[in-house]
Design a protein around this nucleic acid. Structure first.
Lengths: 195, 195
DNA sequence: ACCGACCTGTGATGATCGTCACAAAATGGA
DNA sequence: TCCATTTTGTGACGATCATCACAGGTCGGT
């Protein structure tokens, strides 16, 4: 168990280092905000209607965010290893989430507790910088996602994923992918079969 | 001209205050990064292919971001008074922009120069916090935009804009709006005429 | 008031996609 | 291995939307 924690710590530390230079002091400041958490498949990291009070750094497994639209689940994102999963709106403004975050596989993550993270940021500017860079990469990812959505047809979007995120096609089922691409399951099946 | 500058300064100061508590010290730190800039209608705030080296706080007028897809312009966002217009991807990572930012009306804005902004942030943590909050609100806006895109039909999206951003329908022409909503100009015209 | 450029409305037509229905295939326990 | 559950493929059909074409309308400038 300690081995697991050590490995996860190494992983998140490496991630934070890629975002901003991270010293021992910074690690000491942020360390109290972190805990290792595990979820079984289908467990919810965030329930719709609740306020999001944490960021989750994904160590192993993946999760999805989905809305419930007239009884149907619409996926809006998938988070894999080395991604940060959260509801920014809810986290930042304290509003209730209107979607769920759910483990799509058995999941190991590092939880960044909001209260303690803010405390760490107040005390150490580098933590604030880390937060900004983290948001930056989330915003950049979203910007790109909106773009492919507006610029491409369903078929082109699928090809784009195949090119840029091939691991997503491997790990996410066709049914789950279809709503992410904004098309019906049957349509995605047909797109995939042509050529 | 000094009056104009004073008014614009007041405006941006008020905006920054809504994001984070802003003291005289913070103002002194960030002030050197700011300049007032004006654009004529159709002037480019950011040319496609260039690196984005500034944030623009919109004082008066509005601008749009658009991709060029096979010779057609696809609008992805509109920025009005009290919005921040920029290409986050390009600004943060120094990559070349693959879209343009263009004044859609005569435009007055406050330009936040990237280099000087970073210098200010290094010297004053509150500027860093301002940057984070600014990114937060951009990311939140984008998240919402993706959602309405995935959850709604063309007609519902139009109704959503009418409800939540009525001023956008007033100021943006039908032709410009249609690509923003992801539909053909003709379709939007028909949607608007039914009921 | 006039002209030209641009924006908006509208019809006809075909392509794409969603929906419903069901069959086939894969998956995961007992 | 076998069965139940879930996932995926496929056909038929209708709805929605893109495209092309053109007519009417609006607006600014001279």
């Amino acid at each position: 168990m300690l081995d697991l924690e050590a490995a996860a710590s190494q992983q998140v530390l490496h991630y934070m280092n890629t975002l901003t230079g991270f010293t021992a002091k910074d690690w000491r400041a942020i360390y109290p905000a972190l805990t290792i958490v595990s979820f079984k498949k289908d467990d919810l990291l965030l329930e719709p209607g609740k306020v999001c009070d944490a960021l989750y750094y994904i160590c192993k497994g993946y999760c999805r965010t989905f809305y419930n639209k007239d009884g149907k689940e619409i996926n809006t994102a998938f988070f894999f290893e080395d991604d940060i999963a959260t509801n920014i709106n809810s986290f930042a403004r304290g509003e209730r989430s209107d979607y769920a975050i759910q483990a799509a596989e058995p999941l190991t993550a590092i939880k960044f507790d909001k209260q303690r993270l803010y405390a760490a940021a107040a005390q150490d500017p580098d933590v604030e910088t880390l937060g900004r860079k983290c948001l930056q990469s989330i915003a950049a990812k979203q910007e790109q996602h909106v773009a492919i959505y507006k610029l491409m047809t369903a078929q082109e979007r699928y090809a784009y994923l195949a090119e840029h995120y091939p691991e997503m096609l491997q790990r996410v089922s066709l049914s789950q992918l279809s709503s992410y691409l904004g098309i019906a399951r049957e349509t995605l099946s047909r797109i995939r079969s042509r050529k």
